[in-house]
């Protein structure tokens, strides 16, 4: 699973340009599903037919990114964020475009750190003129953090674990499924989550499932002077109670808890103050779809160095597999 995860995090998938991730996922799952297709926004929908309830799973393929808005006379690129990125985390950071062009980010002269905003930052791709830069990059191109997958033993450090970790969990759970076909399962690898849960909205409308589960990362409260939150790395995947996009449906949440206890899979309960996930869009679709979320605890979300615990990841796969093969009400 580490190999899979490494493959997923080292590719880039800015919101609206998730094709590289989609290709990896497609190759991984195609032998395990009955049907596989893309919709108008680019969501990858993988269907595994079954008898029971229609359950939609969603993990998003996109990651936070930057978009070029202007190329100046000297060949420096000005940019804006796509999704939640903080300007001070970008200084000195390297970024990579889908063409392979690499650049570094720095800032104009400032007196104090708090003056730092996106208008003060630029990307330097080593071009010495506008013309040279324009041969490599165009306005509208997107880039992502340029970072390697780092295996710290039990912990993993990488960019875009939000939400490639979720993608990896869904792929692995799917690959583990036996041929018992208890429920009809829709594995949806969504697009544009980071800019407003957009892919989940249209795919849920199309599929109109009985239940929805998002597989995503969540914050933790186990770092120095962190906000109050009873989620830590290494204590198992988290079953969502609420975030700002969804109050997990009690039926879904309780079923997940019940299964975790039955199979003695470690789990935590998640109350996330700020932040949303695809379940937020799914549960408000059409007549309402009872939804919940399975979260992988993750430190430093949206930074170039997100950290998860490998055992949490494996437990998430185990739990998800059990959830999908349970008899739903």
């Amino acid at each position: 699973m580490k190999t899979l995860l490494q493959k997923l995090v080292e590719e880039s998938g800015p919101p609206g340009a998730e094709e590289k991730i989609r290709d990896i996922v497609k190759a991984e799952v195609k032998d395990y599903v009955d049907e596989i297709f893309e919709d108008a926004l680019g969501n990858l929908i993988c269907v595994r037919k079954g008898e029971g309830k229609k359950i939609m799973l969603a993990a998003h393929m996109d990651e936070v990114a930057l978009m070029v808005t202007h190329i100046d006379e000297q060949g420096f690129l000005r940019f804006t964020k796509v999704g939640g990125v903080l300007p001070h985390l970008l200084v000195g950071e390297r970024v990579i475009f889908s063409s392979g062009v690499i650049g570094t980010i720095n800032h104009e002269k400032i007196k104090e750190l708090k003056e730092l905003d996106f208008s003060k930052l630029y990307i330097d791709i080593g071009a010495s003129s506008k013309k040279e830069a324009e041969n490599k990059v165009a306005v509208g191109d997107t880039c992502v953090y340029y970072r390697q997958f780092t295996d710290l033993g039990r912990r993993i450090l990488a960019k875009s674990l939000d939400d490639r970790a979720g993608c990896a969990v869904m792929i692995s759970a799917l690959q583990k499924l036996k041929d018992d076909r208890i429920n009809e399962l829709y594995f949806v690898f969504t697009v544009q989550e980071e800019v407003g849960l957009r892919g989940a909205k249209t795919s849920a409308y199309r599929l109109d499932p009985d239940f929805g589960i998002a597989v995503d990362v969540t914050r933790t409260g186990d770092t120095p002077e962190a906000p109050t939150m009873a989620v830590s790395l290494g204590k198992g995947p988290a079953i969502k109670v609420k975030d700002s996009s969804v109050l997990a449906h009690p039926q879904v949440r309780d079923l997940m808890i019940e299964i975790a206890e039955k199979y003695k899979i470690p789990y935590q309960l998640e109350v996330l103050e700020r932040g949303g996930t695809d379940a937020g869009a799914i549960h408000l679709t059409k007549e309402g779809i009872p939804s919940g979320a399975l979260s992988i605890p993750c430190r430093y979300i949206h930074t170039p160095s997100e950290m998860i615990d490998y055992e949490d990841l494996q437990s998430a796969v185990n739990l998800l597999e059990k959830i999908l093969t349970a008899r739903w009400p």
Binding site: H283, L284, T285, K286, E287, G288
Partner: peptide, 10 residues
């Protein structure tokens, strides 16, 4: 206003 959205649809 989440409940109203789905009940109005329904």
């Amino acid at each position: 206003v989440r409940g109203a959205a789905v009940s109005a649809y329904n």
